[in-house]
């Protein structure tokens, strides 16, 4: 009985010692990540779409933080993200580089979809729903228009459509950007129609 208590105490004591040593070591040897890069990473949409030319959101955040990349390469994040990053970095906001001037959304022509699930796997924001051998469809609200689902589709049944500008997503565009011009065009068309 005595030796049993002894064994438990010895092992427990050793474990406690190791635990305390490790806890102290985490404090003493704590490595600061780049705090700016971390903040930028938090601002990015984490879609890991690669449209900025970097292999993910964190590499892009690092590149912005050390000044080797501009603030305006994040396409899914759009203007809001760009402004937040520009604020953080203390630089002038620039128009977001967009291949398409207008926000796009993916649309699956369901009668052509063969239910192969390849686009579901490609979607970085899980905006495509469906099951094997069932039609897939896009949740338009979640789609960032990153085009990543176009490539894997074996039957090319995905279209990129212009995203309707919904009230809940709307914000004033920066003056003299592509988006401001688009908005102006839309409003003038609307006025003509009315």
């Amino acid at each position: 009985m005595n030796s049993l208590v002894f064994a438990v105490l010895a092992l427990g004591g050793m474990a406690l010692l190791a635990g305390v040593a490790l806890a102290i070591a985490t404090r003493v040897f704590h490595v600061e990540g780049n705090p700016v890069a971390e903040q930028i990473d938090h601002l990015l949409p984490q879609t890991q779409c690669g449209q900025c030319g970097y292999p993910g959101c964190t590499p892009y955040a690092n590149a912005v933080a050390d000044g080797s990349a501009d603030v305006n390469h994040c396409v899914p994040g759009g203007e809001r993200t760009m402004r937040a990053i520009a604020d953080l970095m203390g630089v002038e906001p620039k128009a977001v580089e967009e291949a398409a001037a207008e926000p796009m959304v993916a649309f699956i022509r369901e009668d052509e979809c063969i239910g192969c699930t390849l686009c579901i796997k490609a979607c970085p924001v899980d905006a495509i729903i469906g099951a094997p051998k069932h039609y897939h469809t896009v949740i338009a609200d979640h789609c960032t228009g990153c085009n990543l689902c176009l490539e894997p589709c074996p039957v090319d049944c995905i279209d990129m459509l212009i995203k309707p500008e919904l009230l809940e997503h709307w914000s004033w565009p920066l003056p003299d950007t592509e988006r401001a011009r688009t908005g102006l065009k839309r409003r003038s068309q609307h006025a003509q129609a009315a």
Partner: peptide, 25 residues
Amino acid sequence: LHLEYLQTIFFILIIAALVQFVEMV
């Protein structure tokens, strides 16, 4: 302490803690 029969568990504990520590350093 005459605890030779606890070798395995003691060594696991020590090695795991040591490697973690070295990694931090």
